[in-house]
Design a protein around this nucleic acid. Structure first.
Length: 861
RNA sequence: GCCGGUGUGGUGAAAUGGCAGACACAACGGACUUAAAAUCCGUUGGCGCGAAAGCGCCGUGCGGGUUCGAGUCCCGCCACCGGUACCA
């Protein structure tokens, strides 16, 4: 890139100038209720960005895309007279800093601080109107103290199914409080990643490999902290309804939670007291169950298996346990399993069916056991074909009359029918359509105590512990194998100072090496796991409301004001990438609901309106990546074209939510536009310096100019509200072009234009505003404090308007009519058109459609 | 397989059921300049007719439909992108 090229306008001098000015004047600081300068008569507006993980690589162009969008909105809302909360912070715990520490021996807090400083500098060079007094950092003890405090709230609470709300654990009347806590310890099999030396959540495992680094992951049973998010499954689905989120994201969350209605059915076991309970969404196919499958890890397996089958079963179980999730999915094409030697008894007809184990049945879903109905389930069908198990049709696509009991049970169907139909070969259900058959069988089972209707969710409880150093320590100690919370007064519990962060190689976390820190009392030792990175980001939007509060995680008044005080409210606009559509947003909603149930926050939902910015591709249309060499660094763009140009281009590229490729010549285009605005006010001198150009306070805009101006106010206002920034900028270009060849330029019009452009290009417009104020001596102060302009609808309509004349829907002529012309007058004038006469000559006019102000369509035979 | 999104000029895109392609980029032509850059003006969906002004036909992934009128609404397909996958 040529740095020698002359700048089309002197952004490199005035952009830093205004950034310093805003910082010094604290222009964008938003006082809290009770603070000096707080104006309670103004409505609040809370605009939130997903805060970044401050990586060593610095900002990517994807970051400023969403950040510019929210910045425009917050500057605009401020000019519209709102108290605007627009904060920024750092999601700074996490694996990369820790791994860098392992490599270099440098403490993660050091690299984190460096990276934060780097990110912050980059963001400030973009001129964002953040209230930096509200900056948060998840690794700051003053912050994570409250993350730990919230964990204690979860630990000390349970979910009461009666009220469907979390309640203090003291209201639980059962014997074992530990079995109902929202934060609990579990011994379940987890995803262990030997390379990272840690356990990962299901969501962090992709195709059997770790999301971070792509290392293989295996299943291992371990003691872990879990959060009982499943208790909230139904509310997390139901309460999506009132949110202004993209329907796609709502669906994604619903599918992730995965509610399915069905029934539990109890099967007896031949020659045994044991019972096997299965979950099925198709209880109507119970008569078609020809075998049964347990998950290989199912605890009943050991008690059921026969002696002669034991070697095979054991071998299969070991093989499955060794398999990583990757292998399990890769090998999914081919079904596998072994027979236990045992038989189950079908509760409706006493039929004896073999019990198998197979890894296509998952321990974690439903009851970990299924009844297999191969005729009506693809997976069972494949399995039955492979192992030559019987297949019996019990659902028919068309109603079929049973011939007594002699329906041909013996001939197996030729293909699997997974859909709905009509019951056959099913005793009392015969002839019923699927929905009725489900209801009927559920009724029968329930009446006989053989089963009941149930709802199941795919959502699992949240595996909340990690074997890492760089995370929040748990406020928990262990004594005699029992856990207990430390008092909130002992928070924050900071991680020990350590120089060796390496994984221990065992399942012991690195904190186990800090022997002094570990000892809590003579008998008690501290929990050595740390919290996952999600923890800090689950509630940061609440801390922003009241960052400095030392007594509460957020003050009541501040929370009530900014989060909307019990109305549907919360964050008014939340912008971020789709990659957080499920996890972050689900976890944060879960925590928020718990805090709400316990009376700590005023709304049930945190984020009222959500928008996902689209991905920015490289200039080659491919995903940006170092290896492709198509990465665009925002710093380079700012150095060459300025922050306003980068902001403008990011918004002009296309709709915010669309995926779109980067284009350097597009940046040049927006630069040309900004330079044109600059020259609207400034004129280049002989010596290359800039001085005020021909702008006049006396000059009056003519009718056409006024119309463009007012149309622009209207359109830019509507477009910003709709986040349609590309079209708003297009209108600002139209408006600018209308004044380029005007001299002298009317001051009032120029000022309106600058005001409209200010949220998009704050530096340029402030600089020009200041130059005008110096010359004209009025309008002191900064443009950011000027109220948003209004428009006069009357000025938008010309006295005369153009009407399109169509014949059979094709444009044939245009006429000019007075703006208030009657229908009849317009039609008469249309019929009078010579060109229309040509096209209708000799034809019968069947109909005339008149759309006032728009068109006349004459329909001929 | 399932769910979601997107298909419009050479490119990014715009269009409450009412003139398809606003606004830009690129390209081409012109003005200014010794020259270039920058700037300004103009042309720019395709095909055809015309010396020209102009005129006509076709055109929003494909095939149907509704309507006076469809990029937009309905039905059926195709392609690409993203997510997800033995969830019983």
């Amino acid at each position: 890139m040529s740095t020698a090229r002359r700048k089309p306008y002197p952004f490199s001098t005035f952009e830093p100038k205004w950034q310093q000015h805003w910082d010094r004047a604290q222009t964008f600081h938003a006082p809290n209720p009770g603070d000096p300068g707080f104006d309670p008569t103004k409505p609040k507006y809370y605009v939130l960005d997903m805060f970044p993980y401050p990586s060593g690589a610095g900002l990517h162009v994807g970051h400023p895309e969403g950040y510019t969008a929210t910045d425009i909105l917050s500057r605009y809302k401020r000019m519209r007279g709102c108290n605007v909360l627009h904060p920024m912070g750092w999601d700074a715990f996490g694996l990369p800093a820790e791994q860098y520490a392992i490599k270099t021996g440098q403490h993660p807090s050091v690299t984190t601080a460096q990276n934060v400083a780097h990110f912050k500098g980059q963001l400030q060079r973009l001129g964002f109107a953040y209230d930096w007094q509200r900056e948060v950092n998840t690794t700051d003890p003053g912050y994570f103290r409250w993350t730990q405090w919230i964990f204690l709230q979860l630990y000390h609470a349970w979910f009461n199914p009666e009220t469907q709300h979390a309640e203090p654990i003291s209201t639980y009347k059962g014997a074992d409080v530990d079995s109902v806590r929202l934060a609990y310890v579990s011994e379940a099999p987890v995803n262990w990643c030997p390379a990272l030396g840690t356990v990962l959540a299901n969501e962090e495992v992709i195709d059997g490999k770790s999301e971070v680094g792509g290392h293989p992951v295996e299943r291992r049973p371990m003691r872990q902290w879990m959060l009982r998010i499943t208790a909230y499954a139904q509310r997390l689905i139901d309460e999506l309804e009132g949110l202004d989120w993209p329907t796609g994201i709502k669906l994604l969350q619903q599918n992730w939670i995965g509610r399915s209605e069905g029934a539990e059915v109890h099967f007896g076991v031949e020659a045994s007291e044991e019972k096997i309970t299965v979950f099925t969404t198709r209880p109507d196919t119970l008569y078609g169950a020809t075998y049964m499958v347990l998950a290989p890890e199912h605890p009943l397996v050991e008690r059921l298996v026969t002696e002669e089958q034991w070697p095979d079963v054991r071998e299969y179980r070991e093989k499955t346990a060794r398999k990583s999730d990757l292998e399990r999915t890769e090998l999914a094409k081919e079904k596998s399993g072994v027979w236990t030697g045992a038989f189950a008894l079908n509760p409706v007809n006493g039929e004896r069916i073999p019990i198998w184990i197979a890894d296509y049945v998952l321990l974690g879903y439903g009851t970990g056991a299924i009844m297999a109905v191969p005729a009506h389930d693809e997976r069972d069908w494949e399995f039955a074909r492979k192992f030559a198990l019987p297949i019996r049709e019990v659902v028919s696509a068309t109603p079929r009359v049973s011939v007594g009991n002699k329906v041909s049970c013996d001939s197996e169907p030729l293909e699997c029918l997974a859909g709905e139909g009509f019951a056959v070969n099913s005793g009392p259900l015969d002839g019923l359509p699927t929905a009725d058959a489900k209801a009927e069988i559920s009724r029968l089972l329930e009446a006989q105590g053989l089963g009941k209707k149930t709802v199941n969710y795919k959502l699992r409880d949240w595996l909340f512990s990690r074997q890492r150093y760089w995370g929040e320590p748990f406020p928990i100690v262990w004594e005699d194998g029992k856990h207990r919370a430390i008092p909130a007064s002992e928070l924050p519990l900071t991680p020990p100072e350590m120089t060796d962060f390496k994984p221990t190689g065992t399942s012991e976390p690195p904190l186990a090496k800090a022997t002094d820190w570990l000892r809590y009392s003579d008998k008690a030792t501290r929990e050595t796991n740390t919290m996952p990175q999600w923890a800090g980001s689950c509630w940061y939007y609440l801390r922003y409301c009241d960052v400095r509060n030392a007594d509460r995680f957020v003050g009541t008044d501040a929370e009530n004001y900014w989060m909307g005080g019990g109305n549907s409210g919360g964050v008014d606009l939340y912008v971020g990438g789709t990659e957080h559509a499920v996890l972050h947003l689900l976890y944060a909603r879960f925590w928020h609901k718990v805090l709400h149930d316990l009376g700590h926050v005023s709304t049930p939902e945190p984020f009222q309106r959500l928008v996902n910015q689209g991905l920015i591709l490289g200039e080659d249309g491919q995903k940006m990546s170092k290896s492709r060499g198509n990465v665009v660094n925002p710093d380079d763009v700012i150095a060459e074209y300025g922050a306003d140009a980068l902001r403008g281009y990011l918004m002009f590229m296309g709709p915010l939510e669309a995926t779109k490729p980067w284009s350097m010549s597009g940046v040049e285009g927006i630069t040309r536009f900004l330079a044109r605005v600059w020259r609207l006010v400034m004129e280049e001198q002989q010596d290359g310096s800039w001085a005020l150009g021909p702008v006049s306070a006396e000059a009056v805009p003519d009718k056409a100019q006024l119309r463009v101006l007012h149309a622009s106010v209207k359109k830019v206002t509507a477009d910003i509200e709709a986040l349609s920034f590309n079209t708003a900028l297009a209108q600002l270009m139209v408006c600018t072009n209308a004044f380029v060849n005007v001299s002298p330029r009317p001051l009032s019009a120029v000022r309106t234009l600058l005001t409209l452009l200010n949220p998009f290009s704050p530096h340029l417009t402030e600089e020009l505003w200041e130059n005008l104020a110096q010359r004209f001596g009025d309008a002191p102060g900064q443009l950011a404090d000027v109220p948003w302009p209004t428009w006069d609808e009357a000025l938008l309509i010309d006295d005369e308007i153009e009407i399109v004349l169509q014949v059979n829907g094709k444009v044939r002529d245009k006429i000019i009519v007075p703006k208030d012309a009657s229908r009849d007058a317009v039609e008469a004038q249309a019929r009078g058109s010579a060109r229309i006469a040509e096209w209708t000559a000799g034809k019968e006019i069947k109909k005339v459609v008149v759309v006032p102000g728009k068109l006349v369509n004459i329909v001929v035979a």
